[in-house]
Simulated assay, not measured.
Amino acid sequence: MQRVGSGKEAGIITAAEDDHAIVVDCTGLTITPAVVDTVALAAGRGQRSEYVATLAPGNTSDFLVLPDGLAADVPSAVATLLTRPEQVRALVAAGRPVRWSGADVPGRATAPEAGVPATGDLTGGPRIGTWTDRNGFLHQELTADGRYDETRGGRPHAYQGRYWIDGDRIDYRDDLGFWAYGEFRDDELHHAGYVMKLR
């Protein structure tokens, strides 16, 4: 997290002379990642390109801007987004602002209905079924009702929750409360350092 200065409301400026970059004035506020990559924090990723949702230069970032009192640490900041989104001064996702001053940015996509994949009815779709990594350690079953169920290292139901597919990206919301994501590349599903194929 990063606290910046004091005394001003957040402001957003489009700097046309700088390739239309978005400049966010966060004076007196706290900036915190909206997604926490615990694998990276535990030194489980060796290259910057492998990091998820970090604020490192060159990465497309997801971050929150909150009043200091609502961002004592990353979990409390993320909890504020989920329980009191009107208190969020800014939410930037994949490098684009999606919430600003407690309201959705005009024209932003609406969140998918809980438990329903963004692509609609996936019954019999090409991505429904059980995905398995080449060593057989990870088995991830995607069902047509928008649920996933993972077996890891022979431990059934290690992780379970909802998922949403948008193009080649898949987002997971685990029943334990954390978020994760993956990417479909041709006939492979890349997730958390694993490469899986539909079996």
Rank of each mutant, 00 (worst) to 15 (best):
A158L: 07
G177T: 09
V98D: 01
R89F: 02
I165D: 00
N135C: 09
A90V: 05
S101K: 14
Y181G: 15
Q160W: 01
L176T: 11
P57D: 06
R152C: 05
A111Y: 09
H191Y: 10
G129C: 10
P106E: 09
R108P: 00
L81C: 04
A158Y: 07
T119D: 14
P97C: 09
G129V: 03
Q160K: 12
Q87A: 15
G69Q: 09
G182E: 01
G182K: 02
T60D: 13
G193K: 12
G146M: 07
H190F: 11
D168M: 04
D133L: 03
L138S: 04
A192G: 10
E188V: 11
A79M: 12
V105M: 09
D171R: 15
A180Y: 07
P117R: 00
A180I: 02
G95R: 10
R127K: 12
G167N: 07
P117G: 09
P106K: 08
W100K: 03
V116C: 08
P75N: 03
E113I: 10
D166N: 14
I170D: 00
L55Q: 07
E183I: 11
P57E: 03
G146V: 03
F63D: 00
P97K: 01
S76E: 08
D187L: 09
E150I: 11
A53V: 02
P85F: 10
A56G: 04
G107T: 05
P156Y: 04
L142F: 14
A144M: 06
D174Y: 10
G129T: 00
L64I: 03
A71F: 00
P156T: 06
F63Q: 05
A71R: 01
A56P: 02
I170E: 02
R162P: 01
P117Q: 01
R152M: 08
E183R: 15
A144H: 13
